[in-house]
C-alpha cells in the first residue's frame, strides 16, 4: 500500500481523535513505528491491521470509519492541499463528478506510483449519476462516499448518496443531485493563497 494512504489514515485519527488515540491504535496494531511515511510503500496487510485497530478503538464499523476518512480528506484544514487538487476538477459539482474519470491519472501526475481505483461516471438523467469504482482492494467505495459528501458541501450542492454494494472488484455509488446551488459553498481560487 502506498504510504500516502497509510499516512492519510494516521492523520485522520490524529486530527480527529488526538495523538493519544493514535498511540492506542499503534499499540493495538503492534506497529513497529509510531508514524507512517507518505513517500514509502508498506505491506497492504498492515493497512488492514491499522483499520481493524481503529474500528476496535472507536467502536465503529469499518464502513463508517472509511467514510469518515473520505470526509476528513476533503474537509479538514490540514488536508487543504488535497481539497484544492480536487477542486481543480471542475467549476461546479457536476463538472467535478465528470472529472472523477480522470482522477487516477491526475493522482499519477503528482505521485506516479499511487494507484487509485478506476472510476467511471454514468449519467442516468434527472440529476442521477452512478459512479463505478474498480479496485482489487475493497473499501474505496466507502472512502469515496465521504469524499463525495464533503465535496458536495464544498461546492454548495445538495445531494443524496447511496452505496450499492460490492460485487467482485466493482463498487457502485448512486448520486442524486437535488440542487446544484443549495448553499454558497467554499471559495476556490486557482492561484494558491500564500506564496
Amino acid at each position: 500500500m502506498h504510504g500516502l494512504i497509510n499516512r492519510a489514515i494516521e492523520c485522520f485519527v490524529r486530527d480527529t481523535y488526538g495523538d493519544a488515540c493514535w498511540d492506542g491504535v499503534v499499540r493495538a496494531a503492534a506497529l513497529d513505528a509510531d508514524r507512517f511515511e507518505a513517500m514509502l510503500r508498506y505491506d497492504t496487510a498492515l493497512t488492514w491491521r491499522v483499520l481493524d485497530a481503529i474500528t476496535g478503538t472507536l467502536g465503529k464499523s469499518r464502513d463508517d470509519v472509511l467514510e469518515d476518512i473520505g470526509t476528513y480528506l476533503v474537509s479538514h484544514p490540514n488536508t487543504e492541499a488535497l481539497r484544492r487538487l480536487l477542486r481543480f476538477g471542475g467549476v461546479g459539482f457536476v463538472d467535478f463528478l465528470h472529472s472523477l474519470d480522470e482522477l487516477p491519472d491526475r493522482a499519477r501526475l503528482a505521485v506516479d506510483d499511487l494507484d487509485l481505483p478506476q472510476l467511471e461516471l454514468r449519467e442516468c438523467g434527472d440529476g442521477k449519476f452512478v459512479l463505478n469504482l474498480r479496485s482489487e482492494l475493497p473499501g474505496f467505495g466507502h472512502v469515496m462516499m465521504g469524499v463525495l459528501r464533503a465535496m458536495a458541501d464544498d461546492y454548495g450542492a445538495l445531494v443524496m448518496l447511496e452505496y450499492d454494494g460490492r460485487c467482485g472488484g466493482s463498487e457502485n455509488i448512486t448520486i442524486s443531485l437535488v440542487e446544484t446551488a443549495y448553499a454558497e459553498g467554499r471559495s476556490f481560487h486557482l492561484g494558491a493563497q500564500a506564496g
Binding site: 500516502l4 511515511e37 507518505a38 513517500m39 514509502l40 492541499a81 488535497l82 484544492r84 487538487l85 481543480f88 491526475r106 501526475l109 503528482a110 505521485v111 486557482l190 492561484g191 494558491a192
Partner: peptide, 23 residues
C-alpha cells in the same frame, strides 16, 4: 489549469518528500 494542478500537486509531493528527508 492542468499545469496549475500539476504545480500544486508537485509542490505537495515535494513537501512530503522534503519532510521525509529531514526526518
Amino acid at each position: 489549469v492542468e499545469m496549475l494542478y500539476l504545480v500544486e500537486a508537485k509542490s505537495a509531493a515535494m513537501e512530503a518528500s522534503r519532510k521525509l528527508n529531514q526526518r
